[in-house]
Design a protein around this nucleic acid. Structure first.
Length: 254
DNA sequence: ATGGCCTCGGTTCGAGGA
């Protein structure tokens, strides 16, 4: 089975691309971020006509997460427990024989900004939530847009980016703390092309010049990682007309 | 280079993203 994640930067704008890509790639589970739409306008009908079961937790204009799958979905959580958050950034479901936690981690805007503090607080609450979840379940995948490039090799120009938001040491430490719970960055379980990225700025012809960051991730608990046969970034949709600035990341599991 | 580009809400531009 395939497990995929994609920040679509507006599901309203990208619905046809999501339908096209999912029909071609045939993931069993696809986690979406930045759907940017309220639940009452979510395109349930178009997706179910294409054979997908869906769960979603959205809001107008910003944020919003959703999961589509070829199998029944059971919602476990649509917010971080104990964290007062007006923004829809998390959706945890049971699907097939695993627990999927779909996250849209805050961007942080700039190191030291209020939004940066919110990002770090959010990541702390995520860590606490996942610590508990790992005590209850063996097979867990934590996927989505983490807005963190874990290492310099995940950054096209580490010198230019040094210390800035998405790569700062505090953000990277928060990412490592998640790995410290036993979760593994599944992409790095396998040999990968150098300069592999999942996001490219819309400006400066960044995609054509491959000036990107790897900030979209699929973390796996040990039991799930054992079943992982490969992970790749599918940069195809980033080259389509009117693309999202992110592209799908795909894991293959036994 | 103080930016460049894209999406949204709601107007004819500002906020937010990364």
């Amino acid at each position: 089975m395939k497990l995929a994640t994609w920040n679509v930067n507006s599901l309203r704008v990208r619905l046809e691309q999501v339908l096209a890509w999912s029909a071609e790639a045939r993931p069993s589970v696809l986690a979406l971020q930045e759907t940017k739409m309220a639940d009452d306008v979510f395109p349930t009908e178009a997706l179910s006509e294409a054979g997908w079961q869906v769960e979603f937790a959205g809001q107008a204009a910003y944020n919003g997460v959703a999961v589509m799958a070829d199998s029944p979905l059971e919602r476990l959580a649509d917010a971080l427990p104990g964290f007062d958050d007006a923004q829809q950034r998390l959706l945890a479901v049971k699907v097939r024989d695993l627990v999927l936690v779909n996250v849209y981690v805050p961007n942080g805007q700039a190191v030291g900004a209020d939004k940066y503090a919110y990002k770090l607080d959010w990541l702390k609450a995520l860590e606490a939530y996942l610590k508990n979840l790992l005590q209850e379940h063996d097979r867990i995948a934590v996927v989505g847009d983490f807005n963190i490039a874990p290492e310099d090799r995940d950054v096209h120009d580490p010198v230019a980016w040094e210390g800035s938001v998405l790569v700062s040491e505090q953000e990277r430490a928060a990412f490592r703390a998640l790995c410290g719970l036993g979760l593994v960055d599944s992409f790095r379980l396998f040999e990968q092309p150098e300069q592999s990225y999942s996001w490219w700025d819309y400006r400066q012809a960044a995609f054509r010049r491959n000036r990107g960051l790897r900030i979209d991730h699929i973390l796996m608990s040990p039991a799930l990682a054992k079943r992982c046969k490969g992970v790749h970034i599918d940069a195809g949709p980033r080259a389509w007309p009117r693309p999202s600035d992110h592209t799908p990341v795909v894991a293959e599991l036994d």
